[in-house]
Amino acid sequence: MSLGAGELQMLYDLHGKHFDHLMNIGLRFGRSREDIKDIINQMFLDFIDQQVQLNTISNHKAYLSISFRRRLIDIDRENKKQQQILDMITPDAAYEPGMDEKSDNAQDIVDRAKKIKLLYEKLPPRCQKVIQLKFYEGLTTEQIAKKTGLSVRSVYNNLFEALKLLRIDILHVQAAQRKSLSSLFFIICLLFAGK
């Protein structure tokens, strides 16, 4: 069921009659006139889409005012959420780490790589080989199977087992040091870079 011509005319009349009032509400929210016009027009279009029966509402001005304020508040909330997300993913441009901090970070990476290498050396030889071929030589699972003579399923299983064991051991090391690790892939690459 869609709105009839009478309801559409009523919406059009209410838009014209209460536009200035809604504009003043928007201005008090600190919005620009263009933004307010867009929001008002979108609200009335949504009324049409939602088939709101305004002829059943006794106080149109109050209904429109409350609907418009709620819409403005929802838009502000959404903008704040988006800004918080941007703030989390955008690095602080004013922050520049000093040489000591860069040196400490580099030393931490080297120390972690050494610990990962020790953990890697504790893996079974077949798992070591599969890890080396996958992450250092960049071979696909099928290429590893062909090169090692293992079945594709065995390659998957060895990769899974190796990564699981490394992850468990890394978590133990991490818990002991209370420091976060860089991604496993990055450290594995560092591990083989020294070979």
Rank of each mutant, 00 (worst) to 15 (best):
I85G: 02
T90E: 08
D108W: 12
Y136I: 05
K129Y: 07
L150R: 04
A145H: 01
P97C: 04
D20G: 00
R28I: 00
L159G: 08
T140F: 02
S151T: 15
S32G: 02
S2W: 06
L191C: 11
D111V: 09
Q143S: 10
L190G: 09
A93W: 10
K134T: 13
I187F: 07
S67D: 06
T56H: 11
F44Y: 13
A176R: 13
A175F: 10
P97D: 06
R70M: 10
L171T: 09
Q84M: 14
L86G: 04
S32Y: 01
N157P: 02
R31K: 15
D35K: 04
T140N: 05
T141A: 11
N157I: 10
S154C: 11
I57L: 04
L184T: 10
F47I: 04
S32V: 00
C127F: 07
V52F: 04
Q42S: 11
G30C: 01
E7Q: 12
H21P: 00
L184R: 08
L54N: 05
L64Y: 07
G4Y: 00
Q9G: 03
K195Y: 07
G26W: 00
L86W: 10
I144G: 05
A162K: 04
A145P: 01
G30A: 03
S65K: 09
R71W: 04
M99K: 13
D111G: 10
K61I: 03
I66L: 14
H18R: 01
I144C: 03
N59H: 11
K146Y: 07
I85P: 02
D74N: 14
L8C: 01
G26F: 00
L22M: 06
I73E: 15
A113I: 07
P125G: 02
Q132S: 10
L27W: 00
I131H: 03
R69D: 04
D46W: 05
L166M: 04
N158T: 04
S32Q: 05
L45K: 03
K102Y: 09
Q50L: 10
R178G: 06
A62C: 05
L165I: 12
R31E: 12
M88T: 13
M88W: 09
Q83M: 12
R33V: 07
L184Y: 06
K147I: 02
I188T: 06
N158D: 13
I57T: 08
Q82D: 09
N55E: 15
L139D: 08
E78Q: 13
E96K: 14
A162W: 06
G6E: 10
F160Y: 14
K134H: 13
G138Y: 02
I57S: 02
R112Q: 15
I39T: 09
I170G: 06
